[in-house]
């Protein structure tokens, strides 16, 4: 079953600035009241990299990561489902999903993944 994307962004109730991840005070106006927002729709790729020297806990040859912006403007990092960075370009449309991103203490850890739609 397709899992819901379990990240929450925070929209400042005073000035409307959108935050992800969480801050206790708004990055624009320092207000402390936020409306919780869920990412919506597909995403646009803002930047990406393929990392070849991975930290402990990853045993694949490389990992492609990027930052993408959802249709409702939430920006977040995620793993990218592609064989090579040659398949990617900044600005391309990405399909988000919530999937296992690593294993820690024998358990799957879930997180954002993006897949190119073009």
């Amino acid at each position: 079953m397709k899992k819901e994307i379990a990240i929450t962004a925070y929209k400042c109730k005073k000035c409307g600035k959108l935050h992800y991840p969480y801050h206790d005070r708004c990055l624009a106006c320092k207000s402390r009241e936020f409306e919780q927002i869920k990412p919506q729709g597909n995403a646009k790729l803002l930047t990406y990299t393929a990392i070849f020297n991975l930290p402990w806990g990853f045993d694949q040859r490389f990992l492609i990561l990027g930052v993408a912006e959802f249709e409702n403007k939430i920006k977040a990092m995620g793993q990218i489902k592609a064989d090579s960075v040659d398949q990617l370009k900044v600005g391309m449309k990405m399909k988000p999903s919530w999937e296992p991103i690593r294993v820690q203490y024998g358990e799957d850890v879930y997180g954002l993944k993006f897949e190119p739609m073009e």
């Binding site: 990406y48 806990g57 990992l63 990561l65 990092m77 793993q79």
Partner: peptide, 30 residues
């Protein structure tokens, strides 16, 4: 690499396997 990566955001970045060179890679592209 993991030790240095612990300075990234504990929920929004670190779990994804981001490293400091990875941050630099994304910055360099832009």
């Amino acid at each position: 690499t993991d030790f240095v990566a612990t300075m990234t955001h504990p929920q929004a970045e670190y779990p994804y396997g981001i490293t400091l060179p990875g941050m630099a890679g994304m910055f360099t592209r832009l």
